[in-house]
Amino acid sequence: MSEATSFLLTFLREAWIALAGAFLAFALLAGIAQILRVSSAGLIGANLWVWESVSALAAIILLGLFAYLGVPQIVGALGSALPNGGGCGPISELGTLASGLIGGLAALRMLKATFTSILSASLGGASTFANALTECGEALFGMILAGAAIPLAAFFLGTC
């Protein structure tokens, strides 16, 4: 079981590193796309377009800071709060596997949500900052629910 946990967590860690790298690349692309939009909108006198792009640029920087500084802190805090499974035997090992996987998947989901927003902004669309935050909230809520479910499952199935 521990080998499976370590294999899955290694896979998720590699996915995290790849997603974080791609996030940076697309954040920069989104930034230059929005600046191009500002300059072209300024030339044709489209004030609203300029303000949209300026706010999108601010949202990109905020999203970058949130993804790189906020998400790891949130996941770290919730991961340390997740119970590692009570009881003994296979249920305890399953609890450890589950808490590790829940933390990893929630972290990846949050990063994926911010990445999707950045990708949308780099393609010239709206940065959908609110959608990213909503998805992060869903992942957090899922982690909290799982944190409550693991000890319950251990209590009913694996107490000894």
Partner: peptide, 18 residues
């Protein structure tokens, strides 16, 4: 400014928190 922001974000690039 943008390359500097990129460098800043690169230095913040987090390790997997799990």
């Amino acid at each position: 400014f943008l390359p500097q922001v990129g460098e800043m974000l690169k230095s913040f690039q987090p390790k997997p928190p799990f």
